[in-house]
Design a protein around this nucleic acid. Structure first.
Lengths: 228, 228
DNA sequence: GTCTATATGTAGATAGAC
DNA sequence: GTCTATCTACATATAGAC
């Protein structure tokens, strides 16, 4: 968290003051509140007033810490996107360390599970973020954010799948990967639907059960789409 | 379109005047413009001012014809939802007329293809509507519209699939149906992504090719998820 | 860094003339 | 049914005191 050391404070060279704890706390509180409200109400539906109020901060502090509403939104998305991408790439590295040619199921699992685990672990901030990602992915207005935050990692996994199926049509691989991602996102956007449609069945499926179903679904679906 | 007849005009009983052609045209122009702008910018992002302007109408005419912004939005979604549901149910009837026990693939096809055909035929109004449906499906604020417009038909198809797989877990069927629907919706929300990711492959997949891939993907995925 | 006050724009809705 | 004019509320952003 880069707290300043006494030695640094004594340096005679004029220097940029380190961010104070309080300032950092305000900035983070704003990011957290924005994450929640953007996820609940969408970009236009969440006002900076409400965000500031939910963060216990002043309206003016949003411009001070995060330039403006648009930059705030981008920072909210980017913050966790980096962590998520890292988790996915770590899972991929681990996989390849054990097996130079991982299975399709293992690849999909490495990509899908970090998201599901974060979203399903009950952390409300990650749950909100999961809905936010779904929003960004579906809205053409934010497609630059998608390109920057999500597409590079997706590209790495698609390249791995291409290596596994060198004879398959590459665009078919890309398309079925998108089907898989959108099925993944549906678990956070359509949770209420799942609950409603499962109600007749009498039981609520647990998140890890859902994750298994998703991976099975996507693997089989992709194999079928690549054959066609 | 319920034009009034001279005979009716001469009736001595006072009656509700039929809607004039011009009024109807204005009302429809507003619906069309709203469909496009809501799809492009979301509910909050599209103002009634812009909608009225795009429709060549006055702002006040929106309240006059459609009560207010929220009712306008619901009417936009409902208008085509009825047509879409009918196409799906017709396809199902046709299917069952030939075969009391249709295949899973045939059932999925009956549900998925009407949407894809409408969205893929190049009609820009239907394309906008397809994006709008994706928006409504993903946004919890509109889940009442989903329940009213889409869930009943989805329920009919899920019931058919349950009949096909009486031994399978019902909630697993519901969940994989949701995966399928969200993969379907991704074709309209992620078209730019498909284009970007397919670019490396050099060719743009045609819509009917995509539809085949989607049906194959969902059928195989669902079978796998039901086994698990 | 924070806060008050305010500038400036735009939102949705409607009253009342035509 | 349409259109002009306007009401009221709320949006984002910033200037300047503390």
């Amino acid at each position: 968290m880069s707290q300043e050391s006494p030695a640094a404070a004594r340096a005679d060279q004029p220097r940029r003051r380190a961010v104070s704890k309080r300032s950092l706390a305000t900035s983070l509180a704003i990011l957290d509140a924005a994450e929640r409200l953007f996820a609940e109400r969408g970009y236009d539906g969440a006002s900076v007033r409400d965000i500031a109020s939910a963060a216990g901060a002043q309206i003016a502090s949003i411009s001070f810490h995060h330039v403006g509403k648009e930059t705030l939104f981008e920072r909210v998305v980017e913050r966790r996107a980096k962590e998520l991408s890292q988790l996915r790439l770590d899972a991929l590295s681990m996989l390849k360390a054990h097996d130079a040619k991982p299975t399709l199921k293992a690849l999909l699992s490495a990509f899908l599970r970090p998201y599901l685990e974060k979203a399903g672990a009950g952390d409300p901030q990650w749950l909100a973020y999961a809905r936010l990602v779904a929003m960004v992915s579906a809205d053409i207005r934010w497609h630059r954010i998608s390109e920057r935050c999500f597409d590079p990692t997706a590209g790495v996994f698609i390249a791995e799948i291409v290596k596994l199926f060198p004879q398959a049509d590459r665009s078919a691989i890309a398309v079925s990967f998108i089907f898989s991602v959108s099925a993944m996102l549906s678990l956070s956007t359509s949770q209420w639907r799942i609950e409603a449609l499962s109600a007749a069945a009498g039981n609520q499926p647990a998140m890890d059960r859902l994750a298994d179903q998703l991976v099975s679904f996507c693997e089989a679906g992709m194999r079928a789409a690549l054959k066609g």
